[in-house]
Design a protein around this nucleic acid. Structure first.
Lengths: 196, 196
DNA sequence: AAATTGGGAAACCGATCTGTCTCCCAAAAT
DNA sequence: ATTTTGGGAGACAGATCGGTTTCCCAATTT
C-alpha cells in the first residue's frame, strides 16, 4: 500500500466515524483501530486531531461536490430540469441507510466559536453549493438568479435538517414542492420580481 | 437562595455554555465554576452530566416556546398575520448578539446515535413547533393545514441553518419571501392543492 | 450553648483524551 | 548477506474528563 492510499484510507475512516458519532466523541484511538493504522504513522501525516478533521471535511467537500453535481447533470438536461433534479438527488441522499445530517452543519454546531478554520470550511462548502445553484439559476434564465439561488439553497438546508432532526422522511418532497413554486415564480412570473 | 433557584441557576448556566461551546466540549467543572455551585450540590440534583443536559434542553424548550409564541401573538392579530410574524420573530432571534444556531439541531449532530433521550427531546421540540404552525395554519383557513405547516416549518429550519452555517444575515428575509408565497398558495390559491 | 446539617472547596479516583516515545520486525536497499 | 528504514504495537506522559469522597465551616435547630 502506497503512502497516498494509506493516508486516504485514514481520512475516509475518520470521516465515516465523524459522521456517525460526531467529532469530539470520536477518539483518535478508535479511528486508528478501525483504519488499521498506527499512531506513529498518523502523526507523521497529520500533526494533530484537528488537522485530521480538516482533511476529512475537505475530502467530504470534494467527494460530495463531484457526486452531487454529476448526479444532477445526469438527471436533468436543461438548467431548469437540473434545479428540480437537485431536490430528488437530495431526497435520495437523505433516504440512504447511513444519513446523519450534513456534516458541515454538525461541525458548525460542535465548533461554535472555538475553531475558525472549521467554521470557514463549513461556510465555504455552503457557499460553493450556493454558487452552483446560482449558476444553474442564471443558465435557466432567471432575471434575479441571486434571489432564486438564495431561496433554493435555503430549501435544501431546511430539507436536510427536517429529515435529520424531525426524522421526517417526506422532507425532500416538501422542499421540492416549495422549490417548484419558487422556480415558477422566478422563471414563469410576471417579471416584476424585486431584486433582493 | 432557595434550593429551587439554585437548581434553576445551574441549569441556566449550563444551557448558556452548551449553546456557546457545544455539549461534549463543555466540562462539568467549567459549568460549576461559572455557576458558583459545588460539585457535591450539583450531583445531588442531577445524577450525571447527561441529566443536566436533559434539564437544560427541556428548560430551553419551555423558555423558547413561551417567548416565541408570545412574541408571535403580540405581533399579529389574525392567524395569517401571525404566520407571517413568525418569520420576523425568527429573524430577530437570528440577529441577536449571541445566536449559535438551534440548540436542538446542534444536539442532534453531537448525539447522532448515542443518546436516544436527547434525540427524542430534539425531535419533540421540533414537533411541538410544527403543531403550533399547524394550529395557526388551520385557524387561517387553509384547506390543507398539514401541507402548509410542513412547508413553513421547513422554511424556518432552513433560515436558522443558513443564518448559522452560511452566516447569511439575510436568511430570515429570504425565508419570509418564500413563506409569503407558500401562504398565498395555500390560502389565496385556486383551491386545487393536492393533499400531500 | 451545644448539636445538627447543608453545602462549598478541593482532594481524589479511574477512565479516557491527545500526543510522544521506545521497541522491534519485515521488507527494501546496498 | 548485511544494513537501513518504514511502520505496527503499544507503553507512556500529562491533561482532562465525569463522578465520589473528605474536610470543614457557617448557619440553623434544639
Amino acid at each position: 500500500m502506497t503512502q497516498l492510499s494509506r493516508r486516504e484510507h485514514l481520512v475516509d475512516t475518520a470521516l465515516g466515524l465523524f459522521q456517525e458519532s460526531g467529532f469530539h466523541s470520536t477518539g483518535i484511538d478508535r479511528i486508528l483501530n478501525e483504519a488499521g493504522v498506527s499512531k506513529k504513522t498518523m502523526y507523521q501525516h497529520f500533526h494533530s486531531k484537528e488537522e485530521l478533521i480538516y482533511a476529512a471535511l475537505r475530502k467530504y467537500d470534494s467527494t460530495f461536490r463531484n457526486y452531487y453535481m454529476n448526479m444532477i447533470e445526469k438527471s436533468g438536461r436543461t438548467p431548469r430540469e437540473r434545479l428540480m433534479a437537485m431536490f430528488d438527488i437530495t431526497d435520495e441522499w437523505m433516504h440512504s441507510d447511513r444519513f446523519y445530517g450534513c456534516i458541515f452543519i454538525n461541525a458548525m454546531g460542535e465548533y461554535a466559536q472555538e475553531d475558525q478554520t472549521i467554521r470557514n470550511i463549513c461556510k465555504d462548502f455552503k457557499h460553493m453549493l450556493w454558487r452552483y445553484i446560482y449558476k444553474l439559476s442564471k443558465e435557466a434564465g432567471a432575471d434575479n438568479p441571486n434571489g432564486l439561488a438564495n431561496e433554493l439553497h435555503l430549501l435544501i438546508e431546511g430539507a436536510i435538517v427536517t429529515a435529520h432532526v424531525s426524522q421526517n422522511v417526506g422532507a425532500g418532497e416538501i422542499a421540492k414542492r416549495i422549490g417548484e413554486r419558487c422556480i415558477a415564480a422566478y422563471l414563469d412570473g410576471d417579471k416584476k420580481q424585486d431584486s433582493r
